[in-house]
Write a protein that binds this DNA or RNA. Structure first.
Length: 476
RNA sequence: GGCCCUAUCGUCUAUCGGUUAGGACAUCGGCUUUUCAUGCCGGUAAGCGGAGUUCGACUCUCCGUAGGGUCACCA
């Protein structure tokens, strides 16, 4: 920290659709840094490209952040001392600074048409050179009337060297500098211009953004200089790579809407944990952390330089770990929406068994019928399947009869009590001879939950009904 | 093509000049379990290549190589 100014960070997405992991992670780091320093976190919306704007994006962004527990002190929906937080409502500010730049001789009306500029660009591409508008700069005295683009006039063509909180010293050649557009012909500012003005007016001290912005940082720096602004601290985040290859993960490469994870029943704190560790690591061996622990440990120096692939298997594991840390009541609440056809009575006893078998709640959609269906639907099983190995009908039916008699007289308040009641008998008669028929009778499945838990979940009455039904079948 | 960034097990990472290069996910094996799941124990597996600096380099420098980013009236 260069001084003891209060830390102010912001997340400034454009409303062009859903939020994917990359965007959310940027928000998360900015938020964590503000919280860590008792600073301010701002949610600003950069809606200066009307063509790309997608209806409903802002509520979607807000829902995504809120789901993860990322809250803001100032922002579009709640206002704040630097309102408004929608760039389209801040046009006056951009005009003000545009005028200052014009007066200083650092901005001029773009004399070319869009087609002409495109032609220059095409030519540069053909010659395999970087396109530089400034090479075509004309001396123009045309007064800017707001109908043509306003361009920044780079005060000085030079190489830049600057400091990044993550990457250390960064450099760029002169080619990175150009006369970029400040205000478009539609009257809206470009990102390059608007974010600098907003960050200045909102007192932003740390700018977190992904490394694709390194290349345009010299443009920002030259604008800061032209405006006599002390730049904020730059915090460059590493790219998130797609799981397949070494491509940067983008919407086109399968980056999922973060709310998809919500729909699938992932825990927000697991997602938070996963995202936080994708590009940052506190250094210890603890990997499962709550959002608050992450805030506590968060530091800029431990943000990585190199990109990381998104590994959903690790997310699965992390989600399970967080699920296991939840209280029984919380687990029940989490499971319930996915098990609506199960009675509370059954579900309440089934919770630990379910948690053991899933990585995220949404998994229940695909496995609940196969794994737990027999709890609510009596299985139809042929008598032969109840017989264990070659021991014959008599053993199974005799053992079931005896187990039934044991069950009749005991307390069903836990699977463990049931186990303790049955085990001595099972040990005596051969575990397989007793437990196999019992599990088959109750569940109809060779591979399923242990028979004691099944009894416990089903309850005494239902367990005995099922055993009686099977006994009838075995007798006939 | 110019400019820039990056480089440790398959994957995510620890190491901030001296370690048998540690952990996690995945994988494989074992134990527990009548079965499945959970749980526990263990194994396989890594410093891109080449120069230099140094008593000593995964760590610092340079050159390669590979991957990525960027060169918009998009952010």
């Amino acid at each position: 920290m260069p001084n003891n100014k209060k830390v102010v960070t912001r997340f400034a997405p454009s409303p062009t659709g859903f939020m994917h992991v990359g965007g959310v992670r940027t928000a998360l780091y900015a938020w964590a840094w503000a919280r860590k320093n008792n600073g301010t976190f701002i949610l600003r919306i950069e809606d200066t490209d009307k063509a790309r704007e997608v209806e409903g994006s802002i509520p979607h962004i807000i829902e995504s952040l809120k789901w993860l527990g990322i809250n803001w002190d100032e922002g579009v929906d709640i206002g704040g001392e630097h309102a408004p937080y929608l760039q389209s409502e801040r046009l006056d500010s951009y005009q003000k600074y545009a005028k200052i730049l014009i007066e200083k001789g650092y901005a001029y009306t773009d004399p070319y048409t869009e087609e002409e500029v495109s032609a220059f660009r095409a030519q540069a591409e053909l010659e395999k050179r970087a396109f530089l508008y400034r090479e075509h700069r004309l001396e123009t005295t045309e007064i800017w009337d707001g109908k043509k683009p306003l361009r920044f006039k780079v005060p000085e063509i030079k190489s830049y060297k600057w400091n990044d909180a993550v990457r250390g010293e960064l450099t760029a050649g002169e080619e990175a500098l150009d006369d970029f557009i400040l205000i478009k012909s539609d009257g809206y500012p470009t990102y390059n211009f608007a974010h600098i003005i907003d960050d200045l007016e909102m007192g932003v001290t740390h700018v977190m953004r992904a490394d694709e912005f390194i290349a345009s940082t010299p443009k920002f720096l030259s604008l800061y200089e032209a405006l006599d602004i002390v730049p904020p601290v730059f915090v460059t985040l590493p790219p998130i790579l797609s799981p397949e290859g070494n491509k940067k993960l983008g919407k086109r490469d399968g980056a999922k809407d973060i709310l998809e994870y919500k729909k699938e029943g992932y825990l927000p704190e697991a997602m938070f944990n996963f995202l936080a560790f994708l590009g940052w690591n506190p250094g210890g061996e603890q990997e499962i952390m709550s959002p608050m622990e992450i805030v506590e440990h968060f530091s800029l120096e431990h943000i990585h330089s190199s990109g990381a692939m998104l590994n959903e298997e690790k997310l699965l594991w992390m989600n399970k770990e967080h699920m296991k840390k939840k209280s029984y009541e919380e687990q029940l609440v989490g499971i319930k929406p996915y098990m609506t056809e199960y009675s509370d009575e059954i579900l309440e006893r089934l919770v630990p068994t379910i948690i053991d078998r899933i990585n995220f709640y949404g998994e229940l959609h695909t496995i609940k019928d196969i794994e737990f269906g027999f709890f609510i639907k009596r299985p139809q099983i042929e008598r032969e399947r109840v017989l264990f190995k070659d021991d014959g009908v008599d053993v199974a039916s005799n053992n079931l009869e005896n187990v039934k008699n044991i069950l009749k007289d005991i307390d069903f308040s836990s699977a463990d009590i049931i186990k303790q009641a049955i085990m001595p008998y099972a040990e005596k008669e051969g575990k397989g001879n007793v437990l196999w028929p019992l599990r088959m009778t109750l569940s109809g499945q060779e591979k399923s939950v242990d028979p004691f838990t099944i009894c416990f979940v089903l309850g005494k009455e239902e367990s005995i009904i099922r055993i009686d039904e099977m006994l009838k079948k075995l007798d006939s």
